[in-house]
Design a binder for these strands. Structure first.
Length: 240
DNA sequence: CCAAAGATGCGCT
DNA sequence: GCGCATCTTTGGG
């Protein structure tokens, strides 16, 4: 028998974007494909805000960006550079969290054999099988291996029948650092990205697996219960 | 048309 | 593992 659904309550999403981004790391996305429940544990997120030059919402309110302005917990998806990306609206109009990377997750509801389905949904360019730790180690890879499409999911809410979020109760040790892919002058140095330290090799480029200058070796350590991070490495430039 | 909150392959260490 | 060039696909201008 499958275990009973354990979706987070709507109130889970009623947090400002930085707190929600932090809270989301370690939670599990459940996605039903026919009779099969796929699951991915989130290992990396980024926060975006209305008054944040990197955010889509800062570019103005349009129909496709409308979910970012909706109530907390709305799904916002967009397509960029050849792939889809999954976001969840946070407390405050225009605020959201980008789900940046994950790892396949298994339990009674989502047994090991579901891995085959995720591999089939997200093959390499040549049709080959990815290493398991790289199967959903990026925002588009994650959306693909859960079969989440912009047209189908953007503007919707989570749904206990097909796609929902589950809190596993763990508080992973995190690092907090700069977001990726933000152009110069667009609030690129805000440390609004959160990575599960233990699973950092399944995240995108980060200070634990890469040493290049774009992260500047600068990050914060966030331990369970810490209200704020502890600096590790040189200081980053101040905002504006 | 083309920039974009990406991904990949390749050459090097 | 790391850095960079190249490929990708779409919506908004």
């Amino acid at each position: 028998m499958p275990s009973s659904p354990n979706a987070v309550p709507d109130t889970f999403f009623f947090e400002p974007p930085l707190l929600l981004a932090r809270a989301l790391v370690g939670t599990v996305l459940r996605r039903r494909i026919r009779e099969c429940w796929l699951a991915v544990k989130i290992v990396e997120t980024e926060a975006y805000a209305l008054e944040d030059l990197a955010s889509h919402s800062s570019l103005g309110r349009t129909p496709s960006r409308e979910p970012m302005f909706g109530p907390p917990g709305m799904i916002y998806m967009y397509w960029s550079r050849g792939g889809p990306s999954l976001n969840i609206s946070a407390l405050g109009a225009g605020n959201a969290v980008l789900i940046k990377a994950g790892v396949p997750y298994f339990d009674d509801r989502s047994p090991q054999e579901t891995l085959k389905v995720m591999h089939r949904l997200n093959p390499t360019r040549g049709g080959g099988t990815r290493p398991q730790h790289r199967l959903c180690s990026g925002q588009s890879l994650l959306a693909r291996c859960l079969d989440l499409k912009v047209a189908e999911w953007s503007g919707r809410s989570f749904d206990a029948q097909r796609f929902f979020l589950e809190d596993q109760g763990g508080q992973p040790s995190l690092l907090q650092t700069r977001r990726l892919g933000i152009p110069k002058g667009r609030d690129e140095h805000l440390p609004w990205r959160f990575v599960d330290r233990r699973l950092s090799r399944s995240a995108t480029r980060n200070p634990l697996t890469r040493r290049n200058a774009r992260d500047g070796g600068t990050y914060l350590s966030l331990e369970p219960g810490d209200p704020t991070g502890t600096f590790t490495g040189p200081h980053s430039p101040p905002r504006r």
